[in-house]
Structure formats: C-alpha cells, structure tokens
Computed example of a mutant assay.
Amino acid sequence: MITLNLNNGVELPALGFGVFQTPPEETVRAVEVALQTGYRHIDTAAAYGNEREVGEGIRRSGTPRDEVFIETKVWVSDYGYDETLHAFDKAIGKLGVEQLDLLILHQPATDRFEKTIAAYRALETLLADGRVRAIGVSNFMPHHLERLLAETSVVPAVNQIELHPYFTQPAVQQADAEHGILTQAWSPIGGITFYPGFGDERRSVMDEPVLTEIAAAHGKSAAQAMLRWHLQEGRSAIPKSTNPARIAENLDVFDFELSADELARIDGLDTGVRSGPDPDTPRPERFAMVISEP
C-alpha cells in the first residue's frame, strides 16, 4: 500500500475503501472483507447512514484500531460550531472509537457559508484537542477554499472531490496543490450509478477504448488502470464495492506502472462534465436531513 503524507505529517493510505450508498445491512461484511483483503483506510460519512456498521465491520475484521485509518464527514445540517462538535460525538459514538484519523466537511453550504466557517473552526478545535488527527473538506471549489483559508487558521489536509478520467477538475487540483492540500477522488472510476438524474446521458468510463486498451496492455481491468492513474498522479482514491472479487481487484494495482504517455492519454479524456451535483448550486433541502444520535 502506498501512503501519502498529509500537510501536518499524518500518513494516509492512498487507496481507501468507500461505502457511499452501501446499505447498512451490507456494510459490515464489505468493510470486514476489505480489511481482510488488505485495505487500511475506510471512508464513510454521517449522511451515508452506515457509520455504525463501518465500526462493526472494523471490529469483526480483527484488524487492530491503530492499523485502520478512519475518515468520515460532517453533513451540512450539523454545520455550526457547537453543532459540529456534537457531530463529532455522534460519529465516534456510532463508529465505536475515541479518535478519528480524518474528519472533513461533506460539502460547502454555499447559501449559508458562515455556518461552513463555524463548522470548520470546530474541526480546528477537535484537531488542537487531539480528538482528530487531520481535518479537511469535500467538494470545495477554489473560491470556496480561498474564503475558508481567509477566515480560518488550519489549511485543510484533504479536499475530496469528484474526479475520474471524464471529469478531472484541473483547476481544483491546482488550487489544492498550491495550498498543500491532498486531492482525494470520490467516484474515482466513474460513478456511473451514483447520482440518478445528474447527467443520465453520460457514458460509462469502463467502456472507454483508451482505458480498455491501456488496461489490456498491462493485463489489468479498466478500473485498475484508472486507480493506478490516480496513484501515479499523487492522489488518494476511494473506490467502492460490495463484491469480494471486485474489492480484491481494486486493491491489486501495485504491481504495474503506467507510462508517461499512458497517463497523458487518460488525462486527455476529460470532458469537463460532472456526474454529480454542482457544489455551487444552493440546495436548501440538504438542511432537512437529521443525523441520528448514536
């Protein structure tokens, strides 16, 4: 497993295991299998509704707590200073741990950005108190980052964004790099079914001829070629699956290397079209979600 050094010195396993849209009843076994297969980084979120099952899966795997990097996210309905401190308590209560390795804000609340700032200041407090080892954000565009950095003290360690060969967000990656923020990819192999209603006409990245050709040259799948692309370009990636064979396949990306030409060909597939929601679009309904107590 490749590890990446965050801007505060914490080491993060570059390839994580995601549980977005994984039903709670399937999450325990998926996490258990992932850890037994060799993953050491689990990514969840309050809004996924499966933090409790992630914690149970970690325990059932038999993997020592200090060998598992746990990342979770605060949902917008829990933004605000005191609210976010309580969101942390809810998260660790469900996960069954005392400390989080990485806690991030799930997305910018563009129409209530003052609450986003207050939430991040709560993360800074949790970091200073040693209750989290690193803090960060998700789905922040460069202008969101600039405002956040102007009003807070700690530079985010991570910015988790939609990023796959058809949507590479070069401006966000550049802004992250300029500030020493690690870019982490959600939907790293395309997110074909993640967001019904958002870009229903989109193509499957898995069927992209450039990727299938590159993958075949290395005796790998298109998904493996994409994950290798992320790793070689210095990103963290969070693939997801509940299929044990696919879970293992997604981890089997450390025994080959893409050439500079192959990396450039994959970079050239960018369409600039999102598969998921635009972070700048106000969606007041998000604030109606109630994150349950432990």
Rank of each mutant, 00 (worst) to 15 (best):
E53D: 15
V54K: 04
V54Y: 01
G55P: 01
R59H: 09
R59C: 01
P64I: 05
E67G: 08
K73G: 09
W75K: 07
V76F: 12
S77P: 04
Y79I: 04
Y79F: 15
G80N: 03
G80P: 00
T84C: 06
A87S: 13
K90V: 13
G93P: 01
K94E: 05
L95H: 10
D101P: 03
D101W: 00
L103P: 04
L105D: 02
L105Y: 02
L105E: 03
H106Y: 10
Q107C: 12
P108R: 05
P108W: 09
T110D: 11
D111A: 15
R112V: 08
E114C: 11
K115F: 12
K115H: 14
T116F: 03
T116M: 07
Y120W: 07
Y120M: 04
Y120S: 06
D129E: 15
G130D: 00
G130N: 01
R133C: 09
A134C: 05
A134M: 02
G136F: 00
S138P: 02
N139E: 11
M141H: 13
P142M: 07
H143N: 14
H144F: 02
R147G: 01
A150D: 12
T152H: 12
V154I: 06
V155P: 01
N159S: 12
N159Q: 13
I161Q: 07
E162K: 11
L163H: 15
L163P: 09
T168Q: 15
Q169P: 06
P170E: 02
A171I: 03
Q173C: 15
I181K: 04
L182S: 06
T183C: 02
W186M: 07
S187M: 06
S187L: 08
S187Y: 11
I189D: 06
G190A: 02
